[in-house]
Amino acid sequence: MDRIPILRMGSFLLVTIQVDMHDQLAMTLQDDLSAKISETSAKGVLIDISALDVVDSFIGRMIGMISGLSRIMDAETVVVGMQPAVAITLVELGLTLSGVSTALDVERGMKLLRERVQSQ
């Protein structure tokens, strides 16, 4: 059973999705991430999906749910590196992910997270 690693960087958590997401993997990630946030009391979560080039409505919804869940647990969440094809697919599916913060790459995502945490 493969899992998506969740790395700790100071007060932030880093999730990089390097494999094709399937439904079970997304569910496991949701469980793991919530457990990890409460364990480390992280202030921010950065999800890198630059290697993800195929999404369906379920994965799209999971991305939205994971970021909503982290916010409830008091961790700012930024999704970074979405591919053009993925963005177009999500828009065509009607998933605008309106509550999710986004950034172009990991560097900018980290900067955004730091700003958000400092302003709190």
């Binding site: 605008t96 992910l97 986004t102 950034a103």
Partner: peptide, 12 residues
């Protein structure tokens, strides 16, 4: 609107 949303999703 679709274009703007897609751009926002990418983080720009």
């Amino acid at each position: 609107l679709k274009t703007v949303t897609a751009i926002r999703l990418m983080g720009a």
